[in-house]
């Protein structure tokens, strides 16, 4: 028996919004530790890694490890039927071929349930080693989303250049070129507004705008985003989900021939 309850459906809606542009379907691996998902997009350029810890749920029970392959378009249709404030409960029997989403209104007067067929998906897990990155930048998630959106008007690629002075995002194309520099903040009233840079060595890497923009769909989950970079290895874009877990995106860099 698997049962996981969140007091506000809005959290699950935001999690789904953060992954459904990159993935058509994905396997949710459930254990007593929580829910894990790891999947590459179709073109194998990016990877989504989601962790929702069991202690972050309002109720969590998982008697046996369970892998639930879900069509994210179908899941999205179902979650649209929930109000943001509804309690959401996911339930499945052991070895089941369906999962049930139950929504309950705050006043308990409306209860709906939606059963969704599960899919058997090929599991392709990548082993990602623990890495010490040359540069780790933390910045407001809204600012990162704004930068990705603005620069994608100028080119297909963004160059991220990080030194101890700051981080520079650049793009160029037919229109011309654009550069956005962010300095490390000296003092801020609110921690979520800070830009911080931990640098061992400066790095300059090139990434496809399209994927960075897709990652920023996770912005509603977190005030801050963390970018981890080293020369010639994938970028890690991490959003922490308060009291519940995190979503990490890995993006292969573009490299000169």
């Amino acid at each position: 028996m698997f049962e996981a309850r969140l007091n506000a459906a809005t959290t699950l809606k935001k999690v789904l919004d953060a992954i459904k542009d990159l993935l058509n379907e994905a396997t949710f691996d459930c254990s007593d530790a929580g829910i894990q998902l790891q999947a590459m997009d179709n073109s194998h350029v990016s990877l989504v890694s989601l962790t929702l810890r069991s202690d972050g749920f309002d109720k969590f029970r998982c008697d046996r490890n369970l892998s639930m392959g879900m069509n994210l378009g179908s899941m999205s249709k179902i979650l649209k039927c929930a109000n943001n404030e509804d309690t959401v409960t996911m339930k499945a029997q052991d070895n089941a071929d369906t999962v049930t989403f139950m929504f309950e209104s705050q006043n308990h007067e409306k209860v709906s349930d939606y059963e969704m067929k599960l899919m058997n998906l090929d599991q392709e897990h990548l082993g990602i080693p623990e890495t010490d990155y040359s540069c780790v930048v933390r910045m407001p998630a809204m600012e990162f989303a704004r930068i990705c959106r603005d620069l994608s008007q100028f080119g297909e690629s963004v160059i991220i250049c990080c030194t101890k002075e700051g981080v520079k995002f650049s793009a160029s194309g037919d229109v011309g070129s654009a550069n956005i520099k962010l300095a490390q903040t000296s003092s801020v009233d609110k921690e979520e507004e800070a830009v911080t840079i931990e640098m061992q060595e400066p790095v300059s890497l090139t990434f496809a705008c399209r994927y960075l923009n897709a990652f920023t769909k996770a912005t509603p989950l977190s005030n801050q985003v963390q970018l981890s970079m080293s020369a010639d290895v994938p970028l890690v874009v991490e959003y922490r989900i308060p009291d519940l877990g995190h979503i990490r995106y890995y993006l292969a860099p573009k490299i000169e021939e």
Binding site: M40, H44, V45, S46, L47, E124, H125, L126, G127, I128, P129, S157, T206, A208, V233, P234, Y250, A252, P253, K254, I255, E256, E257
Partner: peptide, 14 residues
């Protein structure tokens, strides 16, 4: 122009 790499150039399947 730089070419887009595949993630599997960096990480292997487990």
């Amino acid at each position: 122009t730089p070419i887009q790499n595949d993630l599997q150039e960096f990480y292997s399947l487990v």
